[in-house]
């Protein structure tokens, strides 16, 4: 599904060059549920951005669903994110002037799914994540946990090949966190490929594999 070979990412700021990812080799199979762990600043988010094609690496290769990322134009990458990735951002990243259902339906409409089906799918995703009663609310009228769930519904509404989630439970209380993790497990059972960054051991243990990153390198990969 995803193959990463000798991935390097560095940031140049004038004279100083910061190497954040220092040669990562990694792969994920179809249907796998992988947790990525590591200290703050280890490079977890950066790694996720590279794999989801939100960013491009300094060197190295990313082959995703059989395609080499460096061969893609930026428009193709956008389209790839639209059709094959779901991405749950660390800070929800909802659009403030769109209601709950509009936030979820937008990527579906962009895929040229007809309006009725798109709204139907969006509603299903939201009902599934227990937000069926908040369809017409704006993000500002939702709690943090609810916003995170909208963000997840948006990511999974069209059944993407891969779901990326960057600390989906970071801002949630235990109960909400547990609900999100239960949902991920359920998706995983249905065959969803999930790559999730998390700080919390208890949630990482729910995944099939835990990948530990430190100082820009993978230091261990443990099969649960």
């Amino acid at each position: 599904m995803i193959q990463v070979k000798n991935l390097v990412k560095s940031f140049k700021d004038g004279q100083t060059e910061t190497k954040v990812l220092k040669g990562i080799d990694f792969q994920a199979q179809q249907g796998e549920f992988i947790a990525i762990m590591g200290r703050s600043g280890a490079g977890k988010s950066t790694f996720l951005y590279q794999m989801s094609l939100l960013d491009f690496p300094t060197s190295g290769e990313i082959i995703i669903d059989g395609e080499h990322s460096h061969n893609m134009t930026s428009e193709q990458k956008t389209n790839f994110r639209l059709t094959k990735c779901g991405y749950v951002f660390q800070d929800y990243a909802l659009l403030p002037e769109l209601t709950t259902i509009e936030n979820v339906v937008l990527p579906l409409l962009m895929q040229n799914i007809n309006k009725k089906d798109a709204y139907q799918k969006a509603k299903e995703a939201l009902v599934r994540i227990k937000l069926g009663h908040r369809l017409k609310n704006l993000p500002s009228q939702l709690s943090g946990g609810e916003q995170q769930r909208v963000s997840i519904a948006r990511a999974i509404a069209n059944h993407p090949k891969i779901l990326f989630a960057d600390e989906p439970t970071a801002n949630l209380d235990n109960e909400s966190s547990q609900a999100v993790m239960d949902f991920f497990l359920q998706l995983h059972k249905e065959g969803q490929t999930i790559i999730m960054v998390t700080h919390e051991e208890q949630y990482a243990k729910l995944a099939q594999k835990i990948v530990k990153i430190d100082d820009g390198k993978i230091i261990s990969q443990i099969q649960n």
């Binding site: 059709t83 990243a93 937008l106 990527p107 962009m110």
Partner: peptide, 8 residues
């Protein structure tokens, strides 16, 4: 974000 979620 729009571009991030795949909006052209």
């Amino acid at each position: 974000i729009l571009k991030g979620i795949g909006i052209n």
